[in-house]
Simulated scan of single mutants.
Amino acid sequence: MNLQSVIEAKSQAKALRASLAAQGTTITHARALELVAHQNGARDWNTLQAKLSRAEPQLFHLNDEVSGHYLGQAFTGRIVALSKVGANTQVSLQLNEPVDTVQFESFSNMRRHIRGMVGPNGRSPRKTSDGTPHLVIDIPSK
């Protein structure tokens, strides 16, 4: 297998589809994924995706102690649930101390449990109005 990640395989399928389209042959994205899987020795796309997903290093693990910022508030806590969603990871965190998710002096909303999506850099793709990621989890040093 020459591919190193699911993202790389999807990029290869996209390039294959564009190349064939430039030559007058139109195929669906699903067909391009299947062709990439066959080119890499897999029975089908699902098999290739499973192999690549297992081979990719995981940034975070269940029960890891983590720190970071949620809506601008510093936190420490533990990862209680994880799931991969494409290149991103859905994380659920149990915080050691509650954080206030509201920035108004006259109102508070304390949270001890938070959930969010983070990319490979530990930052959520969603941002607040000032451009700050909703959730930032510090990447553990190896």
Rank of each mutant, 00 (worst) to 15 (best):
A81N: 10
L82I: 07
S83M: 07
S83N: 10
S83K: 12
S83R: 13
K84M: 08
V85E: 13
V85R: 12
V85A: 13
V85W: 05
V85D: 14
G86P: 05
G86R: 07
G86C: 09
N88T: 04
N88L: 10
T89E: 11
T89W: 05
T89N: 12
T89L: 14
T89G: 09
Q90C: 03
Q90T: 05
Q90D: 08
Q90W: 12
Q90H: 11
V91A: 04
S92M: 13
S92Q: 11
S92N: 05
L93S: 06
L93D: 08
L93W: 08
L93K: 04
L93R: 03
L93A: 07
Q94K: 10
L95C: 03
L95R: 02
L95Q: 01
N96W: 00
P98G: 01
V99E: 00
V99S: 00
V99T: 00
V99P: 00
D100G: 02
T101R: 09
V102C: 15
Q103A: 15
Q103K: 14
Q103F: 12
Q103I: 14
F104D: 15
E105S: 10
E105I: 14
E105Q: 06
S106Q: 13
S106C: 10
S106T: 10
S106N: 11
S106L: 11
F107S: 14
S108M: 14
S108V: 11
S108E: 13
S108C: 11
S108W: 09
N109F: 15
N109G: 15
N109K: 14
N109P: 10
N109E: 15
M110P: 04
M110Q: 11
R111Y: 03
R111L: 09
R112S: 08
R112L: 11
H113D: 10
I114D: 05
I114H: 08
R115D: 07
R115N: 09
R115F: 07
G116Y: 04
G116H: 01
G116N: 01
G116E: 00
G116D: 00
M117R: 11
M117S: 13
M117H: 06
M117T: 12
M117G: 03
V118W: 02
V118A: 00
G119Q: 12
G119H: 07
G119F: 02
P120M: 06
P120I: 02
P120Y: 03
N121R: 05
N121Y: 05
N121I: 01
N121Q: 03
G122S: 01
G122T: 02
G122A: 00
G122C: 02
G122H: 02
R123A: 09
R123W: 03
R123P: 02
S124T: 01
S124Q: 03
P125F: 01
P125R: 11
K127S: 06
K127Q: 14
K127A: 11
T128L: 12
T128Q: 14
T128W: 02
T128A: 12
T128I: 06
T128C: 11
T128G: 10
T128S: 14
S129H: 04
S129F: 02
S129G: 01
S129T: 01
S129P: 00
D130P: 10
D130I: 09
G131E: 04
G131D: 07
T132D: 04
P133T: 06
P133F: 04
P133I: 06
P133Y: 01
H134K: 08
H134G: 03
H134D: 08
L135R: 05
L135I: 07
V136K: 04
V136T: 07
V136H: 06
V136N: 04
V136R: 03
